[in-house]
Every structure is written in structure tokens, then in C-alpha cells.
């Protein structure tokens, strides 16, 4: 038996909004620790991972691990039927269930909606992500700043370079119409309202596809801050964490490399 209830549908709606433009379908792996997912986009440029830890749920029961193959567009359609303040309960049989049940209940518990989502058999490749990556540079910024930077730059072109030196990050773009750049310095004061922090072990300069950096802005509502981790020649790791360590959405984006 798998049963998980979220107090408000907003949490799962935001998480799905953050991943559904990158992934068509994925296995939602349910275990005693929580709900997680890992999937690549079709061109294999980006790996998206998501975790909703058991503590994110008001009720969480997973008697034995199960994997639910879900079409992201279908689950999003069903969740559109939940108001943002409605609770969401997901129920599935852990013995080869062919559908999962979604129950939406309003705050006054006098309106209850039931939906069944057909599950799929998905044969997906699972990649092993190193847990203890020692990144050369880590930058944390308000997620609203992230959205502004990459929505602006990706309009100019798709080749975006991130260069991080001591206390400064430079984001630049080259496109058909011209080019542009933006420098972001670490904020001086620790009590600054919207702090930018930059930790550099070694300066790093790498180039990434702007289309993806812009797509990741869909995760901005999840978190007030975003962390970007870079190591030369390795994928860029971008993390949006849910409040109270309830979970996260992480993207790993393959760099553009010189031929």
C-alpha cells in the first residue's frame, strides 16, 4: 500500500511545473524515505531529478518500494483539477497497480474529488550521480535574480558562458543579433535581503545552452534561492530546494564543448 497526502496541492503542482517541459514521462519511485524521480530530456542534454521527502507529507505510508510510471502531461492535467489550497492524497496498490488514485479535498472538507491516473511501464535508464562532488565554484542567488538573468540573456542567443572568479560571476551571451553580458558581485552584507554568495576554489569558465537555463526558470516558484555548482568540464548542477528540507528539484546540464 502506498498512501501520501500533501496539505496543499501547491507543492506538487510547482514541482511538476518545474519538470514537465523537460520530461514527457518518468518513473516516480516511492520508498519509505519519500517520492523521487530521475529522467533525462529526449536529446540527453539535461538530467532532472526530484525528491519529495516523506516529511513533506502530512500522511506518508509506503509499505514496500514501488515505481509508478507516469506521463507528466497527464498528471498535470489531473492536478489542474485541484485548487491550490486543496489537499492531495495519492493512493496506489504496491502489487503491480495499473492506476494511481488522486483525491483532492478542500479546506472545509465538504468537496472531495477523485481521479484515477493510468500508470505506464517505462523502461528508463538510471544514471549514477556522484554524491560528494567537489565543485570548483558555487554561487547562490535569489531565484528571481536567476530568472531575470537567464530569461534576458536567452533572448539574445543560445550560447551562454558562465565565468566565476573571486567574488564575481559573469554571465555572457553570443547571438545572431549581437552579444551581452552581466556581472554579479557577491553582496557585502550578511543581512542583505537578497544575498548573492560566491564560493570559488578555482576560477571556472564554461558554456551552456541558454534554452535550458531559461527552461529551469520554471522551478523559480519552488524556492526563494537557487544554487549553481560548476566544475570545469562537468555538468552544471542547479538546485532549487523546497522549504523545510521537504525536497528539491535538481538539474544537471551538459556543457557545450570545443570541437
Amino acid at each position: 500500500m502506498f498512501e501520501a497526502k500533501l496539505t496543499e496541492s501547491t507543492t506538487i503542482k510547482r514541482v511538476l511545473d518545474a519538470i514537465k517541459d523537460l520530461i514527457q514521462q518518468a518513473n516516480f519511485d516511492c520508498s519509505a524515505d519519500g517520492l523521487s524521480l530521475q529522467a533525462m530530456d529526449t536529446p540527453h542534454v539535461c538530467l532532472t531529478t526530484m525528491t519529495l521527502r516523506s516529511q513533506a507529507f502530512e500522511v506518508y505510508r509506503c509499505d514496500r518500494p514501488l515505481s509508478m510510471g507516469i506521463n507528466l502531461s497527464s498528471i498535470s492535467k489531473i492536478l489542474k483539477c485541484a485548487a491550490s489550497k486543496d489537499s492531495v492524497k495519492i493512493v496506489a496498490d504496491d502489487e503491480g497497480a495499473d492506476c494511481a488514485e488522486f483525491i483532492f479535498e478542500n479546506e472545509s472538507a465538504d468537496r472531495i474529488a477523485h481521479f484515477e491516473l493510468k500508470l505506464m511501464d517505462i523502461d528508463s535508464e538510471h544514471l549514477s550521480i556522484p554524491e560528494d562532488s567537489d565543485y570548483q565554484a558555487i554561487i547562490s542567488m535569489p531565484s528571481a535574480e536567476y530568472r531575470r538573468i537567464f530569461s534576458d540573456l536567452s533572448i539574445i542567443g543560445d550560447t551562454i558562458t558562465i565565468e566565476i572568479n573571486k567574488n564575481t560571476a559573469c554571465f555572457s551571451v553570443e547571438g545572431d543579433i549581437g552579444n551581452g553580458s552581466l556581472n554579479l558581485a557577491q553582496t557585502d552584507s550578511a543581512d542583505e535581503k537578497n544575498p548573492v554568495t560566491i564560493n570559488v576554489k578555482e576560477p571556472v569558465k564554461m558554456t551552456f545552452p541558454g534554452k535550458y537555463l531559461n527552461t529551469f526558470t520554471k522551478a523559480v516558484p519552488i524556492s526563494e534561492f537557487v544554487t549553481l555548482c560548476l566544475t570545469d568540464g562537468n555538468p552544471l548542477a542547479i538546485e532549487f530546494s523546497l522549504p523545510d528540507e521537504a525536497g528539491f528539484v535538481r538539474y544537471f546540464l551538459a556543457p557545450k564543448i570545443d570541437q
Binding site: 536529446p43 540527453h44 535508464e125 544514471l127 549514477s128 545552452p209 546540464l253 556543457p255 570545443d258
Partner: peptide, 12 residues
Amino acid sequence: MQSSITSFFKKT
């Protein structure tokens, strides 16, 4: 040139 994410992480 755009690299592929599969060239960085091993399949399990």
C-alpha cells in the same frame, strides 16, 4: 558543440 549528459554520469 553540445555534449551529452550520458557521457558524464554512468548508467546503473
